[in-house]
Design a protein around this nucleic acid. Structure first.
Lengths: 192, 192
DNA sequence: CAATTACTGGAATGAATGGTCAAGAAAAGG
DNA sequence: CCTTTTCTTGACCATTCATTCCAGTAATTG
């Protein structure tokens, strides 16, 4: 019933995500979104609600997508220990290759909107996914004999979650190269 | 020669710092600043320039003050190793006690304004101060026999800088307690 | 005590903000 | 085909934005 949408809401959400990710919430105006999405204001409000609702939907999408990729990486075939090390290296590579200094959308949100309850819930869910995936990977690594006895996989996982967020912050500075190289090296040394 | 200022520019800058720190750059309006500083618009523009100039001056002040405190903590009398551990614990405590979820003004800036050259320079100078102070503390710790042989103080310092930034990010979430406790514990275990 | 100089506080500015709305267009159901 | 329902477009709204400006005021200098 009724007229069908002319645009792809999924593609529009993806574009909005990129814009919010690059510019942040406050620095992005509805006019920016109109220009970027190629839609009229009315269409955006009709499809997504307001600016904040659009942001939250974009964030949700980011959290789901990146969370899935995170879990997949850590549960890939092969030794879990190598997967964990690979993840740490991957974070450094992502940051160094990030020419736009976008960083991580989730970290950006945690920093810019710490008081927003709904955004906060998504940030915490993202951290939780990382924690769980890392914990189970580290438990597997221990079973595979790659993790020294006496190490607590859950505590180590939370430590790594914190460290990865730090890499995303340092990755937004121009001095990131020096910091990230050594961070990767030292973190991996810790695990051994 | 002319009328003297009725307000204390230093105190005003401090108040502005608190406001930008709490709210971020974009989310803080000149009206907010007028209300918070208790000054007329003209006085603010006359004393500090515009909004961005005021922000940069507030940031500079933060970077200088916190940098000095950082260095002082690490060069206090006593074993350097304990000072480093104390600093890690201090970061966790600061974050947990931060009822307003302000986080670190420098981290907030790095995340919100990664493309601003002047802000970036101050962020990098802040990281550099931390790196230097940690490196020299770790060298002292090694000389005092508290750091295992074969550890590279400079690389370890850069690793710790990254980790501390991560603690500030996680510290802006409501789940910070779990993460920070384990992060402190694991980081100190790494040093031993 | 002038004259000078700089600070003060609020009015005024035009642009930009997020959000609404109505008129028209297009698709689906009957 | 006609009605119904939704979508699209762009004009429109009140509000807020950063900044400028100016008339009034106070302190210092000679």
């Amino acid at each position: 019933m009724g007229r069908t949408k002319e645009f792809d809401p999924d593609a529009a959400l993806r574009r909005a995500m990129g814009l919010f990710w690059r510019q942040g919430y406050e620095a992005t105006s509805m006019q920016d979104l109109v220009d970027c999405l190629g839609l009229g204001r009315g269409s955006i409000y009709g499809a997504f609600g307001g600016k904040r609702e659009l942001y939250l939907q974009a964030l949700r999408r980011y959290v789901e997508d990146s969370g899935q990729a995170f879990v997949e990486h850590l549960s890939a075939p092969g030794r879990a220990f190598d997967a964990v090390c690979g993840m740490i290296r991957h974070y450094a590579e992502m940051s160094v290759e990030d020419a736009e200094f976008k960083g991580c959308f989730m970290v950006n949100t945690a920093v810019e909107l710490p008081a927003d309850e709904q955004a906060g819930r998504q940030v915490e869910s993202s951290l939780s996914v990382m924690e769980t995936a890392l914990t189970s990977a580290l438990m597997r690594a221990r079973a595979e004999g790659d993790l020294p006895e006496g190490r607590d996989p859950a505590a180590l996982a939370r430590f790594l979650v914190t460290l990865l967020q730090g890499m995303r912050v340092v990755g937004k500075t121009r001095a990131r190269g020096r910091y990230l190289e050594d961070t990767v090296e030292q973190a991996i040394a810790l695990l051994k």
